[in-house]
Design a binder for these strands. Structure first.
Length: 198
DNA sequence: CTCTTGATCTTCT
DNA sequence: GAAGATCAAGAGC
């Protein structure tokens, strides 16, 4: 069980400008990018887009203490508590007030795998960060990170160096607006929370 | 493999 | 009081 593996080539650091457009454009462009928190993380392989005009979004009913960051400017991190026990992370997109974001659902571990194993209490690489709650635990992301800039320490997001094959489909685990195909994944990745149909 | 359930925070009704 | 952008463990097939 080697902890070393070839890391993906890292492109330039993404800045807030990258997120200042529709979440439906940002989401597929994030597939293949490398997300690091305090140097620990990996390649983004699964995301979902949310927008305040559709009822599955946390921002649908207007600002609350929890979702306030979503209503702010793009390029910041929105972290929320899920089912009382997990943390989930989003990248705020578009523009101030549009309350749109991209939920990070899964990454392929490439950096700091021993730390992720320790935090998760598991050895199987496929189980370290193949889900929104799992990846936050693996990267030690909590409400303390809510509102942090995406282009400043401890967060670093490196652009992909090549455009990968991307698949899209229905979002997972929601009960409203289930028909919207706003989930994006890296084709063939074994590190997603669930495979895409087909 | 699938199905069920408990954990227990934030928001809405 | 109930539901939800979840996860892991256990039962059953």
């Amino acid at each position: 069980m080697a902890d070393l593996k070839p890391a993906a080539p890292l492109g330039r650091l993404l800045t807030k400008k990258f997120f200042a457009r529709s979440a439906h454009d940002v989401a597929p462009d994030l597939i293949g990018a490398t997300l690091l928190v305090d140097g620990v993380g990996g390649v983004i392989v699964e995301v979902e887009a949310y927008h305040h005009t559709e009822p599955a979004a946390h921002s649908f009913n207007g600002p609350t203490p929890r979702n306030m960051v979503m209503f702010g400017p793009p390029g910041f991190l929105y972290v929320y508590r899920s089912y009382g026990i997990h943390w989930c992370m989003n990248f705020v997109c578009e523009k101030e007030g549009s309350a749109s974001a991209v939920l990070i659902r899964a990454i392929e571990p490439t950096h700091g795998i021993p730390a992720m194993r320790r935090r998760r209490g598991m050895n199987d690489e496929r189980m370290l960060s193949s889900g929104p709650g799992k990846l936050c635990e693996a990267m030690a992301v909590t409400n303390k990170h809510n509102g942090l800039a995406l282009d400043a320490p401890p967060i670093a997001i490196h652009a992909r160096t090549r455009k990968p094959d991307i698949v899209s489909g229905l979002r997972i685990g929601i009960t409203k607006a289930v028909e919207l195909p706003w989930r994006y994944g890296l084709k063939g990745s074994k590190f997603m929370s669930k495979p895409f149909p087909g």
